[in-house]
Design a protein around this nucleic acid. Structure first.
Lengths: 193, 193
DNA sequence: GTCTATATGATGATAGAC
DNA sequence: GTCTATCATCATATAGAC
């Protein structure tokens, strides 16, 4: 399954980590190759250009998102576990050293990104907003949530908040994340048990 | 005043723009020097190392923040204009092409920053949180705002939201900013007239 | 203050041997 | 698939002339 047997998977894994730690222009092929104990050219064999690597990373994120949310998007279910899952995912990524949300990393380097990477980033973000909008709609319909304003705007705001919070947490510590989760729960009228 | 007469000021101005467009590691002395029509070494005369440049930029941001908020911090006043001023500032910066909040830019490159720059970033962010916390406290006391939870957490959340929103807006357009402003006003119980 | 010239090292990328 | 070797380009930074 996710055994990271071959070099390609190991490259993807390390590249994902580096992207979330230093941004797209903040890491090099050398960072990856020395970590794997191989040479520069070996990375280029699997991903001829850095653009190829970026595309593979973004496509993987999108696939993961779709796998994890497709059941909810198709058949619905409880909204609360979806929100709490998002919080848990955000926190666990942060604690793994994957501090910066990929959107955040890519948006800072946006000027330097090749057009195809920009397009993929945009689609990935659209998917995320659609999923969270659906979660908020379902949650409100089922009286799990109680918030003002429209679900789509609320979804955009929550994603923006989490993206910013991950960055602030890097500077001011993990408590920032917990504070923000708590505040979002309050504003959605979620029971904090 | 702000006439940008000498080279030093022009360097600072362009560097601020580049920082907010491409992040700290996303621009070089060459980008600045060619824009000013001078040579590489001229920039190094004014700012021997890039660390010096970063420190000057952050100190300038902090000074600006303090100048613009000191009256409120000392004597109080209406909270609503402070919040609306923050929104207007955020939007005008974005429209000037200064897409990314300096915090956001610096937090992505955090691993590469020299310790003194990290410290300055941290202090700058603390100042911002303190100011906004005060605004929220005053706003709630004077019945301008009506929100749940504690002002300090709310302040952290709003700053995180604006930081994330600026980055998302770069990818999904300025409407993102407007949506987020609207949502924050709603959650603070501000009259949207 | 700004210039020319240069040092030093990292970067993304390629050609060709094994 | 991975290696050695190499490339052109760019980065930050410095020395010394004007």
């Amino acid at each position: 399954m996710g055994r990271l047997t071959d070099t390609r998977d190991q490259i993807m894994d390390k590249a994902a980590e580096l992207l979330m730690q230093r941004g797209f222009n903040g890491f090099s092929y050398r960072d990856i190759s020395t970590h794997l104990g191989v040479k520069n050219a070996a990375i280029h064999y699997h991903f001829p250009s850095k653009t190829d690597l970026a595309m593979a990373l973004i496509n993987e994120y999108q696939q993961t998102l779709r796998n994890q949310t497709s059941a909810f998007m198709a058949y619905g279910g409880k909204a609360t576990p979806q929100m709490e899952g998002l919080f848990m995912f955000t926190e666990s990524q942060f604690c793994m050293g994957r501090c910066i949300c990929p959107f955040g990393a890519l948006s800072v380097d946006y000027d330097d990104l090749p057009p195809e990477v920009r397009g993929a980033t945009e689609r990935f973000m659209s998917d995320s907003v659609k999923w969270l909008t659906r979660v908020l709609e379902v949650g409100r319909d089922q009286k799990e949530f109680n918030f003002q304003g429209n679900p789509s705007e609320q979804a955009v705001m929550i994603l923006a908040t989490l993206q910013g919070a991950r960055q602030m947490a890097r500077i001011h510590g993990k408590e920032t994340l917990d504070q923000v989760f708590h505040q979002i729960r309050t504003q959605l009228g979620m029971r904090t048990h």
